[in-house]
């Protein structure tokens, strides 16, 4: 750029800068815009509280907790029965009865319903029980007690048959609950909702 052109540019620029010295009354505009900015910030603070209140986890914590409690209750109920069964089996009479009743040990790999079915059948219908009792000349009272125990155990076995299938459902339920929690942590609320609905449908009715 030639020297004189550059000087002209400077002259124009300087002249324009003088025009910028004029003052402008923008008080009304300033008030409006600053008020709008403050209102925007204030409005943002309010929804923040609402978002926290209705955040994903809080929204789903109640149904998940309910499902978890139900699951826990089912599991605990089953364990109590197992515990009772163990207690009864450990008593001397029951142990004796078990010696008489169980001809062959049930394989460990057999499922709970199968075990229950086998033991029930063998305990109540095996002629060996009566034969053994006669052989040992047990008193009438003692034999009544033995049959009482046998009845208790058969009842328990029936419950094992029922809850054995429930146990299978529970392990699935547990997996589902874990999946739901994982979905919630990932923020996939819609899918978590569907999974939870399916889970609640599957849970055993009281």
């Amino acid at each position: 750029m030639p020297e004189h052109e550059h000087e002209h540019d400077k002259a124009i620029s300087e002249l324009y800068q003088q025009s910028r010295e004029e003052t402008m009354n923008t008080r009304d505009l300033d008030d409006k815009i600053l008020a709008a900015a403050n209102a925007d910030l204030a409005a943002e603070r309010k929804p923040t509280a609402t978002v926290v209140k209705y955040s994903g986890w809080r929204r789903w914590s109640t149904p998940v907790a309910a499902a978890a409690c139900l699951l826990l209750a089912t599991s605990v109920g089953f364990n109590v029965m197992l515990y009772q069964q163990t207690q009864i089996s450990s008593e001397p009479q029951a142990a004796r009865f078990a010696d008489l009743a169980v001809v062959e040990p049930t394989p460990v790999s057999a499922s709970a319903p199968q075990v229950a079915q086998t033991r029930k059948k063998e305990a109540l219908t095996s002629p060996q029980v009566a034969a053994e009792l006669r052989e040992r000349r047990l008193s009438r009272q003692e034999s009544d007690q033995i049959f009482e125990v046998a009845d208790v155990e058969s009842q328990l076995d029936e419950e094992v048959v029922v809850t054995g299938s429930a146990l299978q459902v529970d392990s699935e339920t547990e997996t589902q609950v874990e999946e739901i929690i994982a979905l919630l942590e990932n923020g996939e609320l819609k899918q978590a909702e569907q999974e939870l609905a399916m889970l609640i449908e599957k849970l055993p009715q009281p």
Partner: peptide, 20 residues
């Protein structure tokens, strides 16, 4: 981050030039 005075400073810094 929610500082309203920061906006006011930005506004006052740029408003005259923008309006002109």
């Amino acid at each position: 981050e929610g500082d309203g005075t920061a906006f006011e400073q930005l506004y006052r810094h740029h408003k005259d030039s923008l309006l002109r």
